[in-house]
Amino acid sequence: MFDNLDFDVIRRSLPYLFLDGMSFTLMLTGLSALGGLIFGTLIALMRLSGYKLLGRIAGLYVDFMRSLPLVLVIFWFYFLVPYIGQWLTGASRPIRVGAFTSSLVTFIMFEAAYFSEIMRAGIQSISKGQPAAASALGLTYSQSMRYVVLPQAFRNMLPVLLTQTIVLFQDTSLVYVLSIPDFLGAASKVAQRDGRLVEMYLFAAAVYFVISCVASYGVRRLQARIAIVR
């Protein structure tokens, strides 16, 4: 059944697959995780701020994003970002936005909803005595968050945050719907050009599988180590 397969096509396209495709995927994953974490933490702080209106807005944002399929959100932002850019820069027409920027904005906004739930759980897991001790020492609310609560919440939630980042790594493949050459997009381009769908998709699957497996093994190790330290 493998007689008419040509796995050499993989070797020939390796530089393109990894230098172009995988670097796009990893860059998008890394920056989206970072941006999503920062933005998500802000949303979590809004929800826990005690200001009703602020909390409601943040809660609605999270529920809204989590109700929508990522594919739809990708389409939304792909068409919306040029208009947002126009609005921000005051240009006279919708500005042209590159594929990378557009997907980055999408994933940051989308992942922020998920990261915010993780950070919220993390913040809530810190005992009330910690912020109390911080304010007894004279730290302001923001200092107590910055130096006492958030570092602990982040550390406690690190395994969950990393697991979510692995999911994000897999989800970035959906930029395929915009014909953007991320890793899967690059593989698919070669597959269609050379008529080698079977080889290329099997290879892409294997690469995603190995990376995700190794990463989640790492997270499990980390989790075990954290469990011992506590």
């Binding site: 005992s127 005595g129 910690q130 109390a132 001790a133 007894a136 004279g138 602990q152």
Partner: peptide, 15 residues
């Protein structure tokens, strides 16, 4: 004001 009074908690609350 709080910075001028020290407080010690039941559960220590070290960071």
């Amino acid at each position: 004001l709080r910075a001028r009074v020290g407080m010690v908690f039941q559960h220590f609350e070290l960071f």
